[in-house]
Amino acid sequence: MKVKFFAYIRDYTNCKETDFEYCETLEMLLRRLSEAYGEKFRNKVFQGNQLSKEVIILVNGRHIAHLDGISTKLNREDVVAIFPVVAGG
């Protein structure tokens, strides 16, 4: 599956995108990405055991709020995009 990183999330991963091993659920993917990319990434994506409100995650262009949230089932061909929440002025 392809995972794309945007804005300062790229600073934590040192890449724009990666082909990552298949994970059955979004939560499993995020936990494995956290293991791969370390504490800064994990702290941005998770708040305790919950998904952080500091990220927006899309699966195949659909916000996970319109799917099954962190429990969203994934397929091998899916594209997951991880964005930081940003505010403008």
Rank of each mutant, 00 (worst) to 15 (best):
M28I: 12
R10H: 00
F83S: 03
A36Q: 14
R10N: 01
S52E: 11
E27F: 01
E21K: 12
E24L: 06
E27A: 03
L30M: 11
F41H: 06
D78Y: 04
E77F: 09
R32T: 02
G61Y: 08
S34K: 05
R62C: 08
R62W: 07
N60Y: 07
L58C: 10
Q50N: 14
L51D: 08
G88I: 05
H63G: 00
L67M: 10
K40S: 12
N60A: 05
L67N: 03
L26Q: 09
L74R: 05
P84R: 04
V79Y: 01
C15F: 00
E27M: 08
M28Y: 07
N75E: 14
H66S: 11
E77L: 09
R62T: 14
F20G: 00
V79T: 15
F46I: 08
K2I: 15
Y22P: 04
Q47G: 00
A7S: 14
Y37M: 01
E54N: 10
A87P: 00
T25F: 06
E54Y: 13
L33I: 04
I9H: 02
I64T: 00
N43W: 07
T25E: 05
S71R: 14
D19I: 13
M28K: 11
Y12D: 01
L30K: 01
D11Q: 10
N49C: 06
M28T: 10
Y8D: 05
Q50H: 13
L30T: 01
K73M: 12
F41T: 07
L51F: 10
R76M: 11
R62K: 15
F5Y: 15
G69W: 04
A81E: 15
V3D: 09
L51V: 05
T72A: 13
E27Q: 14
N43E: 15
H63D: 14
A7N: 12
R31T: 03
L26E: 08
L33P: 01
I56Y: 01
H66K: 12
F46G: 06
I57L: 07
A65H: 11
S52P: 07
F20N: 00
E39L: 13
P84T: 03
Y12A: 02
I70S: 02
Y12V: 02
K53T: 06
V45Q: 04
Y37A: 02
I9G: 01
E27K: 13
K4I: 08
Y8T: 11
T18V: 14
R31P: 00
L29T: 03
R76G: 05
E39C: 05
K16P: 02
E77G: 04
V86L: 14
M28L: 14
L67E: 06
L67T: 04
V45E: 04
E39H: 09
E17Y: 07
A87M: 12
C15R: 13
E17D: 12
K44M: 15
